[in-house]
Design a protein around this nucleic acid. Structure first.
Lengths: 191, 191
DNA sequence: TAGTGTAGAGAACGATCGTTCTCGCGCAAG
DNA sequence: CTTGCGCGAGAACGATCGTTCTCTACACTA
């Protein structure tokens, strides 16, 4: 087996287990079994569990944001619908059977006080998300686009945590409605 | 030492340590030392760690919501300012030096997949918060007060998680601005 | 005063954690 | 063919976890 394939299989197993049950609830031995990789290989790919956690979060960050951007790009008609399409994508995500909230907020809540690496990755993720939303809002004729983007980011995080706790994807629709009101209040016209 | 006092000291230590560093990062022995209580006493008050975690969360829930309600009651002028006062209270909370996000969301992210007791308490907390916000909004002449309250709840959760991650209490002000826009959009007048 | 029960201090236990070490097998080079 | 070398399988290690047990000291009662 290639070193590259081993990394992929380890990261796949890590994402499924860490995201589904929490980092501390999954031992390295169970992870090794799920990945179908020897313990030696696992430790030569990731010298410590913390490295694996950070790598898992980084890969998930890029994939998550790419999937969101691809959906918004392909779905939304005009620029005015793009910020709202974000919440449509959230709704689809929330409805997935293994949805369990934001991986970064969960990991930060679990390890943020101990590991600064987790906190760093989580902050970068949210900062990148805010930057993406800011780009979407700036393309519209709204007053104070950066402030509005920050408000949308609050709605996104609120919807994710609410959906995770209640198990109800409807939080995405409520957030979408609120986002529409905020954009309208800031003067967005259907462009 | 009284049994009642022992319970209080244990819960005080549990709240400080569990909230500050996460549940799994704190052992029963460290907790025993922090509480100044014998191990035997600790286990006769709380037969297992899970019981202590749930008790800590339940006490925090009642105190947290009581503090919020007291602030809103005493601070806000008219009923129209009450929903906004919620975010002022959040700002004060975020600025506290040991603020580390929502104890219920943190615990749920850490243990929600394993322990259903934690999930139950966290859901009850958020449901009670939503009910409180609904009461505040229903006192105003707005269209669809329940939907608006749900939107405010999204902003509250978003502000808490954002402030926890960035360490910046400004998230509360942004959320307050957004809440004002949403209330205005729903037809709230300064009552 | 002698006996009894309870509490505190901390050792001890079994389980599990992250990590490393050992062993044996297959393969490639000389 | 032989001789290393790298890999997989899993035992082993030290630490730590949640929980229980032991032992001692002391307050209260007859």
């Amino acid at each position: 087996m290639d070193q590259e394939e081993a990394r992929t299989r380890i990261l796949d197993a890590a994402e499924r287990l860490f995201y589904g049950r929490g980092v501390q609830a999954v031992g390295m031995d169970e992870l090794r079994t799920a990945a179908g990789v020897s313990l030696k290989r696992l430790y030569q790919c990731f010298p410590a569990k913390g490295d694996l956690v950070e790598a898992y979060l980084r890969r998930r960050d890029t994939r998550w944001r790419a999937a969101l951007a691809e959906y918004v790009e392909g779905r939304a008609g005009g620029p005015g619908e793009r910020p709202l399409a974000v919440f449509d994508w959230l709704h689809d995500w929330f409805a997935e059977p293994d949805f369990r909230g934001c991986a970064f907020l969960n990991s930060f809540g679990e390890l943020g006080a101990t590991s600064d690496g987790v906190g760093r990755v989580a902050r970068e993720h949210k900062r990148a998300l805010l930057a993406y939303l800011t780009g979407l809002v700036r393309a519209l004729p709204v007053d104070g686009p950066d402030a509005v983007a920050g408000q949308l980011a609050l709605l996104v995080d609120g919807a994710i945590t609410t959906a995770a706790l209640t198990g109800d994807p409807a939080a995405a629709r409520h957030a979408r409605t609120a986002a529409g009101s905020l954009l309208a209040a800031a003067g967005a016209r259907e462009a």
